[in-house]
Protein backbone atom coordinates (compact mmCIF):
# COMPACT_ATOMS: atom_id res chain seq x y z
CA UNK A 1 0.00 0.00 0.00
CA UNK A 2 1.63 3.21 -1.11
CA UNK A 3 -0.60 5.63 0.74
CA UNK A 4 -3.02 5.21 3.59
CA UNK A 5 -6.45 5.96 2.19
CA UNK A 6 -8.31 8.78 3.95
CA UNK A 7 -11.88 8.24 4.89
CA UNK A 8 -14.36 11.10 4.95
CA UNK A 9 -17.77 11.36 6.58
CA UNK A 10 -20.35 14.04 5.77
CA UNK A 11 -22.48 15.67 8.48
CA UNK A 12 -24.91 18.54 8.81
CA UNK A 13 -23.80 21.64 10.75
CA UNK A 14 -26.23 22.21 13.67
CA UNK A 15 -25.50 25.93 13.53
CA UNK A 16 -26.07 26.82 9.87
CA UNK A 17 -27.26 23.54 8.29
CA UNK A 18 -24.38 23.39 5.83
CA UNK A 19 -22.60 20.18 4.88
CA UNK A 20 -19.52 19.61 7.02
CA UNK A 21 -16.94 16.93 6.40
CA UNK A 22 -14.95 15.05 8.96
CA UNK A 23 -11.98 12.80 8.33
CA UNK A 24 -11.66 9.34 9.80
CA UNK A 25 -10.86 9.45 13.50
CA UNK A 26 -11.13 13.19 14.01
CA UNK A 27 -13.10 14.52 16.94
CA UNK A 28 -12.69 18.22 16.10
CA UNK A 29 -15.06 19.25 13.33
CA UNK A 30 -15.27 22.61 11.54
CA UNK A 31 -18.04 24.05 9.45
CA UNK A 32 -16.54 25.67 6.39
CA UNK A 33 -19.64 27.85 5.95
CA UNK A 34 -20.05 29.45 9.38
CA UNK A 35 -16.59 28.57 10.85
CA UNK A 36 -18.23 26.98 13.88
CA UNK A 37 -16.16 24.47 15.84
CA UNK A 38 -17.65 21.26 17.17
CA UNK A 39 -16.61 18.30 19.18
CA UNK A 40 -17.74 15.11 17.44
CA UNK A 41 -18.91 12.14 19.46
CA UNK A 42 -20.54 9.03 18.14
CA UNK A 43 -22.54 6.79 20.42
CA UNK A 44 -20.16 3.95 19.74
CA UNK A 45 -17.25 6.36 20.05
CA UNK A 46 -15.97 5.45 16.63
CA UNK A 47 -16.47 6.29 13.00
CA UNK A 48 -18.13 3.67 10.84
CA UNK A 49 -17.12 3.44 7.22
CA UNK A 50 -18.11 1.12 4.44
CA UNK A 51 -16.73 0.18 1.05
CA UNK A 52 -18.97 -0.35 -1.93
CA UNK A 53 -19.30 -3.74 -3.51
CA UNK A 54 -17.57 -3.54 -6.91
CA UNK A 55 -17.73 -7.13 -8.08
CA UNK A 56 -20.89 -8.23 -9.89
CA UNK A 57 -22.49 -11.63 -9.39
CA UNK A 58 -21.34 -12.73 -12.87
CA UNK A 59 -17.75 -11.73 -12.14
CA UNK A 60 -17.79 -13.40 -8.71
CA UNK A 61 -19.16 -16.65 -10.11
CA UNK A 62 -16.69 -16.61 -13.01
CA UNK A 63 -13.77 -16.10 -10.61
CA UNK A 64 -15.16 -18.85 -8.37
CA UNK A 65 -15.25 -21.31 -11.28
CA UNK A 66 -11.62 -20.49 -12.06
CA UNK A 67 -10.71 -21.15 -8.43
CA UNK A 68 -12.25 -24.63 -8.64
CA UNK A 69 -9.51 -25.53 -11.14
CA UNK A 70 -6.63 -24.31 -8.95
CA UNK A 71 -4.61 -26.65 -6.74
CA UNK A 72 -5.16 -30.33 -5.97
CA UNK A 73 -8.96 -30.17 -5.98
CA UNK A 74 -11.26 -32.97 -7.16
CA UNK A 75 -10.77 -33.51 -10.92
CA UNK A 76 -14.42 -33.27 -11.88
CA UNK A 77 -15.11 -30.41 -9.47
CA UNK A 78 -15.61 -27.74 -12.09
CA UNK A 79 -17.99 -30.02 -13.97
CA UNK A 80 -19.97 -31.35 -11.03
CA UNK A 81 -19.95 -28.52 -8.51
CA UNK A 82 -23.32 -26.82 -8.25
CA UNK A 83 -23.59 -23.30 -6.94
CA UNK A 84 -26.43 -23.45 -4.43
CA UNK A 85 -26.36 -19.75 -3.59
CA UNK A 86 -24.16 -16.70 -4.00
CA UNK A 87 -24.77 -13.58 -1.95
CA UNK A 88 -22.83 -10.49 -0.92
CA UNK A 89 -22.21 -9.70 2.75
CA UNK A 90 -20.46 -6.93 4.63
CA UNK A 91 -18.15 -7.89 7.45
CA UNK A 92 -16.95 -5.44 10.10
CA UNK A 93 -13.25 -4.90 10.72
CA UNK A 94 -11.42 -2.72 13.21
CA UNK A 95 -8.86 -0.58 11.47
CA UNK A 96 -6.16 1.26 13.36
CA UNK A 97 -3.69 3.51 11.56
CA UNK A 98 -0.74 5.14 13.26
CA UNK A 99 2.96 5.60 13.65
CA UNK A 100 4.97 2.94 15.38
CA UNK A 101 8.29 4.06 16.86
CA UNK A 102 10.74 1.71 18.47
CA UNK A 103 14.28 1.59 19.80
CA UNK A 104 15.83 -1.87 19.77
CA UNK A 105 19.32 -2.90 20.93
CA UNK A 106 21.01 -6.26 20.86
CA UNK A 107 23.60 -8.44 19.20
CA UNK A 108 23.94 -10.53 16.11
CA UNK A 109 25.73 -13.79 16.76
CA UNK A 110 28.04 -15.04 14.02
CA UNK A 111 29.19 -18.61 14.42
CA UNK A 112 32.97 -18.73 14.71
CA UNK A 113 35.11 -21.20 12.78
CA UNK A 114 36.21 -24.40 14.54
CA UNK A 115 38.22 -23.13 17.52
CA UNK A 116 37.20 -19.49 17.44
CA UNK A 117 34.45 -18.35 19.77
CA UNK A 118 31.20 -16.95 18.37
CA UNK A 119 31.38 -13.29 17.40
CA UNK A 120 28.77 -11.03 18.96
CA UNK A 121 28.19 -7.95 16.81
CA UNK A 122 26.36 -5.16 18.63
CA UNK A 123 23.42 -3.51 16.84
CA UNK A 124 21.06 -0.68 17.65
CA UNK A 125 18.08 0.47 15.65
CA UNK A 126 15.39 3.12 15.56
CA UNK A 127 12.15 2.40 13.75
CA UNK A 128 9.71 5.14 12.78
CA UNK A 129 7.03 3.95 10.36
CA UNK A 130 3.34 4.12 9.68
CA UNK A 131 1.44 0.90 10.25
CA UNK A 132 -2.08 -0.18 9.39
CA UNK A 133 -3.71 -2.79 11.59
CA UNK A 134 -6.92 -4.58 10.72
CA UNK A 135 -8.81 -7.30 12.53
CA UNK A 136 -12.22 -8.79 12.01
CA UNK A 137 -14.69 -7.30 14.53
CA UNK A 138 -16.94 -10.30 14.82
CA UNK A 139 -16.43 -13.98 15.25
CA UNK A 140 -15.96 -15.08 11.64
CA UNK A 141 -17.53 -18.46 12.37
CA UNK A 142 -16.64 -20.83 9.55
CA UNK A 143 -15.83 -18.10 7.04
CA UNK A 144 -12.05 -18.13 7.50
CA UNK A 145 -11.43 -14.39 7.39
CA UNK A 146 -9.11 -12.65 9.85
CA UNK A 147 -8.00 -9.34 8.35
CA UNK A 148 -8.41 -7.20 5.26
CA UNK A 149 -6.20 -5.35 2.87
CA UNK A 150 -8.06 -2.39 1.46
CA UNK A 151 -7.08 -1.92 -2.21
CA UNK A 152 -5.63 1.47 -3.17
CA UNK A 153 -8.42 2.41 -5.56
CA UNK A 154 -11.29 1.46 -3.23
CA UNK A 155 -13.63 4.29 -2.27
CA UNK A 156 -15.03 4.62 1.21
CA UNK A 157 -18.47 6.03 1.80
CA UNK A 158 -20.42 7.00 4.87
CA UNK A 159 -21.85 4.01 6.63
CA UNK A 160 -25.49 3.45 5.88
CA UNK A 161 -26.89 0.49 7.76
CA UNK A 162 -30.26 0.63 6.05
CA UNK A 163 -29.03 -0.35 2.64
CA UNK A 164 -26.82 -3.36 3.28
CA UNK A 165 -26.79 -6.69 4.99
CA UNK A 166 -24.29 -6.35 7.80
CA UNK A 167 -22.96 -8.50 10.51
CA UNK A 168 -23.20 -7.18 14.06
CA UNK A 169 -20.13 -6.16 16.00
CA UNK A 170 -20.04 -8.26 19.13
CA UNK A 171 -16.50 -7.27 20.08
CA UNK A 172 -15.45 -4.43 22.29
CA UNK A 173 -13.85 -1.39 20.72
CA UNK A 174 -11.44 -0.83 23.62
CA UNK A 175 -10.20 -4.40 23.37
CA UNK A 176 -9.70 -3.89 19.65
CA UNK A 177 -7.79 -0.64 20.22
CA UNK A 178 -5.44 -2.06 22.83
CA UNK A 179 -4.90 -5.18 20.75
CA UNK A 180 -4.19 -3.09 17.64
CA UNK A 181 -1.77 -0.71 19.33
CA UNK A 182 0.01 -3.60 21.06
CA UNK A 183 0.35 -5.43 17.72
CA UNK A 184 1.76 -2.34 16.02
CA UNK A 185 4.30 -1.84 18.82
CA UNK A 186 5.33 -5.49 18.56
CA UNK A 187 5.70 -5.12 14.80
CA UNK A 188 7.88 -2.01 15.22
CA UNK A 189 10.16 -3.94 17.59
CA UNK A 190 10.21 -6.88 15.19
CA UNK A 191 11.17 -4.55 12.33
CA UNK A 192 13.91 -3.04 14.51
CA UNK A 193 15.26 -6.43 15.53
CA UNK A 194 16.16 -7.33 11.93
CA UNK A 195 19.53 -9.10 12.15
CA UNK A 196 19.73 -9.28 15.95
CA UNK A 197 19.75 -12.73 17.48
CA UNK A 198 19.49 -11.50 21.04
CA UNK A 199 17.68 -8.37 22.15
CA UNK A 200 18.88 -6.64 25.31
CA UNK A 201 16.68 -3.57 25.23
CA UNK A 202 13.55 -2.60 23.36
CA UNK A 203 10.91 0.04 23.79
CA UNK A 204 8.08 0.94 21.44
CA UNK A 205 5.47 3.68 21.18
CA UNK A 206 2.31 3.98 19.19
CA UNK A 207 0.87 7.29 17.93
CA UNK A 208 -2.67 6.99 16.68
CA UNK A 209 -3.79 8.61 13.44
CA UNK A 210 -7.16 7.00 12.93
CA UNK A 211 -9.31 4.29 14.42
CA UNK A 212 -12.46 3.12 12.71
CA UNK A 213 -14.86 0.34 12.09
CA UNK A 214 -14.79 -0.60 8.43
CA UNK A 215 -17.48 -2.60 6.71
CA UNK A 216 -15.95 -4.47 3.80
CA UNK A 217 -17.88 -6.37 1.10
CA UNK A 218 -17.48 -10.04 0.26
CA UNK A 219 -19.25 -12.55 -1.94
CA UNK A 220 -20.14 -15.86 -0.32
CA UNK A 221 -20.52 -18.65 -2.86
CA UNK A 222 -22.01 -21.81 -1.40
CA UNK A 223 -21.84 -24.89 -3.60
CA UNK A 224 -22.42 -28.60 -3.40
CA UNK A 225 -20.37 -31.45 -4.74
CA UNK A 226 -21.52 -35.05 -4.25
CA UNK A 227 -24.23 -33.71 -1.93
CA UNK A 228 -21.67 -32.16 0.37
CA UNK A 229 -21.79 -28.44 1.13
CA UNK A 230 -18.68 -26.36 0.46
CA UNK A 231 -18.17 -22.64 0.05
CA UNK A 232 -15.80 -19.91 -1.04
CA UNK A 233 -15.48 -16.30 0.12
CA UNK A 234 -14.44 -13.71 -2.47
CA UNK A 235 -13.24 -10.16 -1.91
CA UNK A 236 -16.08 -7.87 -3.03
CA UNK A 237 -13.71 -5.31 -4.52
CA UNK A 238 -10.82 -7.30 -6.00
CA UNK A 239 -12.73 -10.60 -6.60
CA UNK A 240 -9.85 -12.60 -5.14
CA UNK A 241 -10.75 -15.82 -3.35
CA UNK A 242 -10.03 -15.09 0.33
CA UNK A 243 -11.03 -18.39 1.90
CA UNK A 244 -13.05 -21.49 1.25
CA UNK A 245 -13.46 -25.21 1.41
CA UNK A 246 -13.17 -27.62 -1.51
CA UNK A 247 -13.00 -31.37 -1.97
CA UNK A 248 -9.55 -32.79 -2.51
CA UNK A 249 -8.20 -34.99 -5.28
CA UNK A 250 -7.65 -38.63 -4.30
CA UNK A 251 -5.33 -39.17 -7.26
CA UNK A 252 -2.96 -36.42 -6.19
CA UNK A 253 -3.13 -37.67 -2.59
CA UNK A 254 -1.85 -41.14 -3.58
CA UNK A 255 0.68 -39.68 -6.00
CA UNK A 256 2.03 -37.48 -3.20
CA UNK A 257 2.38 -40.52 -0.94
CA UNK A 258 4.09 -42.67 -3.59
CA UNK A 259 6.47 -40.04 -4.96
CA UNK A 260 7.13 -38.38 -1.59
CA UNK A 261 7.87 -41.65 0.22
CA UNK A 262 10.07 -43.18 -2.48
CA UNK A 263 11.82 -39.97 -3.39
CA UNK A 264 12.70 -39.12 0.22
CA UNK A 265 14.16 -42.61 0.69
CA UNK A 266 16.12 -42.30 -2.56
CA UNK A 267 17.42 -38.84 -1.63
CA UNK A 268 18.62 -39.98 1.78
CA UNK A 269 20.29 -43.05 0.26
CA UNK A 270 21.98 -40.96 -2.45
CA UNK A 271 23.36 -38.49 0.10
CA UNK A 272 24.68 -41.32 2.27
CA UNK A 273 26.29 -42.99 -0.76
CA UNK A 274 28.07 -39.83 -1.91
CA UNK A 275 29.15 -39.11 1.65
CA UNK A 276 30.63 -42.60 1.95
CA UNK A 277 32.31 -42.21 -1.44
CA UNK A 278 34.15 -39.13 -0.17
CA UNK A 279 35.45 -41.15 2.76
CA UNK A 280 36.17 -38.56 5.42
CA UNK A 281 34.15 -38.87 8.63
CA UNK A 282 33.15 -35.21 8.49
CA UNK A 283 31.91 -35.51 4.90
CA UNK A 284 29.81 -38.54 5.80
CA UNK A 285 28.27 -36.74 8.77
CA UNK A 286 27.60 -33.61 6.72
CA UNK A 287 26.04 -35.52 3.80
CA UNK A 288 23.98 -37.61 6.19
CA UNK A 289 22.69 -34.47 7.89
CA UNK A 290 21.80 -32.82 4.58
CA UNK A 291 20.16 -36.02 3.37
CA UNK A 292 18.05 -36.25 6.52
CA UNK A 293 16.92 -32.64 6.26
CA UNK A 294 16.00 -33.02 2.58
CA UNK A 295 14.21 -36.34 3.17
CA UNK A 296 12.30 -34.97 6.17
CA UNK A 297 11.23 -31.93 4.15
CA UNK A 298 9.91 -34.09 1.30
CA UNK A 299 8.16 -36.50 3.68
CA UNK A 300 6.51 -33.65 5.63
CA UNK A 301 5.23 -32.00 2.45
CA UNK A 302 4.00 -35.26 0.93
CA UNK A 303 2.44 -36.61 4.12
CA UNK A 304 0.43 -33.42 4.61
CA UNK A 305 -0.92 -33.71 1.06
CA UNK A 306 -1.65 -37.40 1.50
CA UNK A 307 -3.19 -37.43 4.98
CA UNK A 308 -5.15 -34.16 4.87
CA UNK A 309 -5.74 -33.85 1.12
CA UNK A 310 -9.39 -35.00 1.35
CA UNK A 311 -10.37 -31.40 1.85
CA UNK A 312 -8.69 -28.22 0.66
CA UNK A 313 -8.79 -25.23 3.02
CA UNK A 314 -8.13 -21.87 1.40
CA UNK A 315 -6.94 -18.85 3.40
CA UNK A 316 -7.30 -18.59 7.17
CA UNK A 317 -9.62 -21.59 7.62
CA UNK A 318 -9.30 -23.57 10.83
CA UNK A 319 -9.48 -27.33 11.23
CA UNK A 320 -8.15 -30.41 9.47
CA UNK A 321 -7.43 -30.18 5.78
CA UNK A 322 -4.80 -29.21 3.23
CA UNK A 323 -4.17 -25.51 3.76
CA UNK A 324 -3.55 -23.38 0.69
CA UNK A 325 -3.28 -19.75 -0.26
CA UNK A 326 -2.26 -16.66 1.61
CA UNK A 327 -3.51 -15.68 5.00
CA UNK A 328 -3.97 -11.92 5.19
CA UNK A 329 -1.73 -10.51 7.91
CA UNK A 330 -3.21 -8.15 10.48
CA UNK A 331 -0.44 -5.57 10.09
CA UNK A 332 0.72 -3.78 6.98
CA UNK A 333 3.40 -1.13 6.68
CA UNK A 334 3.06 2.12 4.79
CA UNK A 335 6.64 2.81 3.78
CA UNK A 336 6.10 6.45 2.89
CA UNK A 337 7.74 8.73 5.45
CA UNK A 338 9.78 6.04 7.09
CA UNK A 339 12.63 7.24 9.31
CA UNK A 340 14.61 4.22 10.38
CA UNK A 341 18.18 3.92 11.57
CA UNK A 342 20.07 0.65 11.70
CA UNK A 343 23.56 0.36 13.19
Amino acid sequence: MSKTPKIIVSLTCPNCGGQVQSEEGESLVLCKFCDSVFSLTTDEGIGKIMYRLDVTREKAEARFLEWLKEGPKAKDLEKNAQISEAYPIYLPFWRLVGRGKACVCGVEIKKGDKDEPDRRIPHESLVNREYIYSDIACDPGDLGIAAIRIPDHAKAVEFDDESIVTFGVPESRDDAYSEGSAQIKLQAIKDGKRSMDEVYFSKAFFFEKAFSLVYYPFWIVRYTYEDRAYFAVLDGITSQVISGRAPGNAGSQSTAAALGGTLSGAVLAAFIFFGLALGAIEAIALFFAFGLIAAAGIIGFAYNRFRYGDEILEGAMKGKGLKRGRKQQCIETNYENTYDMFN
Binding site: L30, C34, S36, L40
Partner: peptide, 26 residues
Protein backbone atom coordinates in the same frame (compact mmCIF):
# COMPACT_ATOMS: atom_id res chain seq x y z
CA UNK B 1 -28.63 9.44 14.44
CA UNK B 2 -25.51 8.07 15.90
CA UNK B 3 -23.28 11.11 15.59
CA UNK B 4 -23.50 14.20 17.81
CA UNK B 5 -21.87 17.56 17.17
CA UNK B 6 -21.31 19.57 20.33
CA UNK B 7 -20.52 23.30 19.82
CA UNK B 8 -17.33 24.42 21.57
CA UNK B 9 -17.25 27.58 23.67
CA UNK B 10 -14.49 29.92 24.84
CA UNK B 11 -13.40 29.11 28.39
CA UNK B 12 -12.75 32.74 29.26
CA UNK B 13 -15.86 34.52 27.92
CA UNK B 14 -18.25 31.72 26.85
CA UNK B 15 -18.58 32.89 23.25
CA UNK B 16 -18.93 30.15 20.59
CA UNK B 17 -15.52 29.36 19.09
CA UNK B 18 -14.92 29.83 15.39
CA UNK B 19 -12.07 28.56 13.30
CA UNK B 20 -11.28 28.16 9.64
CA UNK B 21 -8.74 25.47 10.26
CA UNK B 22 -8.64 22.26 12.26
CA UNK B 23 -6.43 23.64 15.00
CA UNK B 24 -6.17 22.11 18.46
CA UNK B 25 -5.38 25.64 19.74
CA UNK B 26 -8.61 27.59 19.39
Amino acid sequence: MSIVLQPLKCLACGAPLKSKERDLML
